[in-house]
Amino acid sequence: MIIVLIGYMGSGKSSIGRRLVKKLDCSLIDLDDFIEEKEQATVKEIFASKGEIYFRKKEEEYLLELLKFKEDVILSLGGGTPCFGNNMNHIIDADNTKSIYLKSSIPKLVDKLIKKKAKRPLIAHIETKQELAEFIGKHLFERAHFYSKAQYQVVTDDKSKDEITEEILELL
């Protein structure tokens, strides 16, 4: 089975993915890391040198490759991946795949991301919590249509990582 974790940056895709790997004894693949390995460049470098259109085409190509894996894997997507091209349809239509939207509220995302914004190029320029909340709110409004197509939704607010992990395991 391929378990696809979907959600906004800071929603816990990577940390929950690492916990699921331990419980399910499978591999974790971060799509952005996979792209960087295949392209021999960071996502930031790809955007700078070849542009977003090139990146999004490669993202779809590599997503399709990963969705054909036969072994059990947790696949953590970039926050924007489900929103481009036919990516969400590819995920829904893939055999032996479960998609899970890790849904976090704007205030919870702001609290997590404000501390880590220097490591996140998309939000590094944002100065205040209010500006960050507006930025996230706009993105979530645009992305909600795609995220909500996931097979399951798990609300992450006010839950520990262990509680979220257990909730996902119960869904599977």
Rank of each mutant, 00 (worst) to 15 (best):
G51S: 10
L75P: 03
I136Y: 03
P121I: 06
I91Y: 00
E59I: 12
L122N: 01
E52D: 11
E60S: 15
H139S: 13
F69A: 13
L132R: 03
I91P: 00
L132S: 00
K117L: 08
D95K: 15
H125T: 10
Q130Y: 06
L102D: 03
L66T: 00
I74H: 06
S49W: 01
S76F: 04
L109W: 07
E142T: 09
A118Q: 15
P107Q: 04
A144G: 06
V110M: 06
Y54W: 11
A133I: 04
M88K: 01
P121S: 10
Q130T: 07
K138D: 13
S49Y: 09
L113A: 09
R56A: 09
L77W: 04
T81H: 06
A48R: 07
K119E: 14
N96I: 08
R120Q: 10
G137I: 02
F146G: 08
A124P: 04
N86A: 15
F69M: 14
K115D: 14
E131P: 00
D111Y: 07
N96C: 05
Y101A: 06
F47P: 00
I126A: 07
Y101P: 02
K129Y: 01
F146K: 13
R143P: 11
I91F: 04
P121M: 07
I74D: 04
I100A: 00
F146W: 13
T128M: 00
A48T: 10
K117M: 09
K70E: 14
Y62Q: 02
E127A: 09
L132F: 01
I74W: 03
F141D: 15
I136N: 00
V110K: 04
V110Q: 04
S99H: 10
H139K: 15
L77G: 07
A94R: 05
L63Q: 02
D72N: 14
E61K: 15
G137A: 08
L122Q: 08
K112W: 12
S49E: 12
I136E: 07
K119L: 13
N87C: 08
K129I: 01
S105Q: 03
I92T: 11
K50C: 04
S105H: 03
C83I: 07
F84S: 14
A144M: 11
H145W: 13
K57R: 14
K70G: 14
F141G: 12
S76M: 05
H139N: 11
F47N: 03
H125E: 12
K117D: 03
R120I: 12
E52T: 10
D111W: 00
V110R: 02
E60A: 14
N96M: 09
G51F: 02
K112T: 14
A118I: 15
C83Q: 00
L109Q: 08
L113Q: 07
E52Y: 05
K103G: 02
L109V: 06
K50A: 06
H125C: 07
L64I: 12
R143Q: 11
K98M: 15
R143E: 09
N87G: 07
H139M: 14
N87T: 08
T81D: 02
N86V: 12
I74M: 08
A118C: 14
E61I: 12
G79N: 11
N89P: 04
F84E: 13
F47W: 03
M88R: 02
I46A: 00
D72E: 13
L77P: 08
S105V: 02
F146T: 08
D111K: 10
G85C: 09
L102E: 04
L102C: 03
V110C: 04
C83F: 05
G80P: 11
